[in-house]
Amino acid sequence: MAVTVFYKDDVIARGQPGDFTQALRDLGPLARSSDLLAFDDDTGRQVDLDLTEPAAPRPRGRPSLGVEAREVTLLPRHWEWLAGQPGGASVTLRKLVEAAMRAGRSERECLDAACRFLTV
Results as ranks from 00 to 15, higher is better:
20 F>D: 06
82 L>Y: 07
3 V>Y: 10
71 E>S: 15
102 R>P: 04
99 A>I: 05
69 A>G: 09
58 R>N: 07
22 Q>P: 01
78 H>M: 05
51 L>A: 02
50 D>G: 02
108 R>K: 13
12 I>K: 00
107 E>Q: 12
95 K>M: 08
97 V>K: 15
12 I>V: 07
61 G>D: 03
32 R>D: 15
44 G>R: 02
84 G>R: 10
117 F>A: 05
103 A>L: 14
58 R>D: 12
22 Q>N: 08
92 T>F: 00
66 G>N: 13
51 L>Y: 10
72 V>D: 13
26 D>P: 01
78 H>F: 08
22 Q>R: 02
107 E>T: 13
69 A>D: 11
32 R>A: 11
59 P>H: 00
44 G>L: 00
70 R>M: 06
8 K>R: 15
21 T>E: 09
69 A>V: 10
111 L>G: 02
18 G>A: 08
49 L>P: 12
16 Q>I: 01
79 W>G: 07
34 S>N: 10
42 D>H: 06
17 P>L: 03
58 R>K: 12
8 K>Q: 15
68 E>A: 05
25 R>V: 10
78 H>S: 02
84 G>Q: 10
98 E>D: 10
97 V>H: 15
114 A>C: 07
5 V>I: 12
30 L>Q: 07
68 E>G: 01
10 D>I: 12
81 W>C: 00
54 P>M: 01
26 D>I: 00
46 Q>L: 11
94 R>Q: 12
